[in-house]
Design a protein around this nucleic acid. Structure first.
Lengths: 214, 214, 214, 214
DNA sequence: TATGAATGAGTATTCATTCAT
DNA sequence: GATGAATGAATACTCATTCAT
């Protein structure tokens, strides 16, 4: 296990240093939350990992709540990026969806995966909770949109886009529960299999008619 | 919103009363946990809902932790029951799997759904956590088994049973995140759609070849 | 270890039964207090030993405090008895003192020994505390009196009666700290040695002049 | 009554201040325990005396239990010191014993006297209790050793060293029960009288043969 | 920047005690 | 007589947060 490299020992130009340290705080929080849960993690724990004292954290972050918020945002941001990239593409709905799935798996298996899906909205103030919900909703809408697009362009079969998005998101999010860094499957491999599964379904296919054509 | 009917005002024969009250405690806990999260729920909150004082809770339950444990167990138990029933059937792997899915959705949309999937193992003592993990693992194995069975009897197409089970469980568990009592879809409808989705997949099917044959 | 025989299984005539049970409660309390201390003993503990439920205790005793009080009294009463008997004798002061010492050791090695000396007055209400202090003071005065008597009749050497009484009582009370039922020395043997010690002191005696003459 | 001087108003160099404050916490605890008993003293009580809030105590001490432990240790440590000094001397066994007695009385009449002898081992965790028992045992052995030494060098008469040590320790420890700061006798006077008493015993001495020779 | 020190607010848990049955 | 059920009161302990230095 690699100890999270603490930027507190290094030197460098002002602005940059501060940013690095702030990131280190957020990341340390993310890891701690993932390991012990939000409520079972004290600020002392996080400070200890960084070889810093508790009040120092407040120099980079205003709150414990904010730490959680930033973790949420970091994780969700990565998925949003994947969505954005997909939107730039000109391929079929299905192809774009698969691209998003890849980004999603990437994000969910990162340090921030836990926060993205297992952290409780309820631990955030109403204001922040609302912002997170908005982010989540955006992603959800994006996925639904891709499903719809696929249905329209014929690359995806008839289905309820809302349910499909829920199911897909659920399967993806759940990865946060079982994925471990040392797992045998890489993030990419997991993405491949999930895609295969969701595209083809469980029913046996008449031979020769793979779902992979478009 | 129906106030959880508190058995504290009623009378009846001893033994039975006690059991009812204990159940009421567990259920009240489940609801509170679902609404506010485990750590944001104080025993006073739970006691208040039941119109009882805090120490009374300890008469029925030994711990806050145990409340969580019982909620876990209650929810998982229902799924296990569904698995048990399916095992008694003589139908195809796919048919049995679908039966389990129905039971799963039922359980996950119940009061205990939150505890089943969103509660953290980490809030339980190692001993209890282990027991819960065991229960979860059993269910996981059961599902994988059904997938394998389906592949063998031809009712399910070729796929990685482990991944399929993960994806399915993930999609199902995720319901706990978005399902609301007042939702437009009933538990049963959700089950139907999920089944449809997982069986057929997202790829367009050559017309006439429904996946429902076996 | 003999389980304290609980009179709750037996039958007999009314009045008598009640008294027996009350005694059993007090004695069970005494043992529990000795083993775990007053504050570390719950009424449930005591009830359990007697195979009874907690409220039952209140039928025989009005308080936890009163249990302690009765234990105090029982122990101190035995010493007081010894004092009374000594007072009836016509022997020398020293001889009477030794008789009292024997009774004292007997009492202090009983189940009530702990309560007699290690229980805190502070755990009693002012009223009860006062009564206990009075009892203790009586015993103290009695011992001082015997020392004075001994000095007067020449059976005891010149000394400060108050200090002598303190030292003697201290040595005796302390037995409650180290005495164990299974100890190699019987209560009587301990009494003998203490007497020998206090009478003769630590200084070497000119041979032939034992202190045992009178 | 002198209010315990609280170091919380003063300033000074860091390291030192912290130590002072910690000591003040322990001493305040010792006094409170002596006055009200361990279990009847709440942390709020102690904090109040120091004009500090409860959590502050935890900054200096990890536990209520640890407070008790430190009080134990402080008191016993003083006696151990006296023993150590005596060991450095080259005088007779009796003379050394008397030196130890002086130190003992000094310790037992200090703020920590109560904890030394009236606090219950049972209020400590097994681990800490064991350490305290060890300390007590060491002192006991030391005293027995001095008695034996005295018997060997002729400064003490024949007696059972174990019983003698028990009696002596008992008499000394008991001081914690009756000594009050405002008492007429100083610690030193008490020591003198006890020594006199234990050396000479209660039996009348043939005139001219004082036990004070060596 | 970073930290030592302090605190307010909150919470699980225990237990003696009561009372209807 | 005895008990199941309930409670009021108390208390140790934790922790996010602040602030002077």
């Amino acid at each position: 296990m690699t100890r999270p490299t603490s930027p507190w020992q290094v030197t460098g130009d002002r602005e940059r240093q501060r940013e690095l340290k702030r990131d280190a705080v957020i990341r340390a929080a993310a890891r701690a939350f993932r390991e012990r849960g939000y409520h079972n993690t004290s600020l002392d724990d996080i400070a200890a990992v960084l070889h810093v004292t508790k009040p120092t954290l407040y120099y980079y972050v205003s709150n414990k709540e904010q730490m959680l918020f930033e973790c949420f945002r970091e994780g969700l941001g990565r998925v949003a990026s994947a969505c954005g990239e997909a939107r730039g593409t000109k391929t079929s709905g299905r192809a774009r969806l698969l691209a998003v799935v890849r980004g999603y798996v990437e994000a969910i298996t990162s340090d921030f995966g836990w926060c993205m899906v297992r952290a409780e909205d309820q631990d955030l103030s109403p204001a922040m909770s609302a912002r997170i919900k908005e982010l989540k909703s955006e992603i959800d809408q994006e996925i639904r949109g891709l499903v719809r697009l696929g249905i329209a362009d014929g690359s995806i079969g008839r289905c309820d886009p809302k349910m499909a998005a829920f199911a897909l998101a659920g399967a993806l999010n759940w990865i946060a529960h079982w994925y471990r860094d040392n797992a045998s499957l890489s993030a990419n491999e997991i993405a491949e299999r999930f895609v295969e599964l969701f595209v083809n379904g469980l029913a046996p296919r008449p031979s020769g008619l793979s779902g992979k054509s478009p």
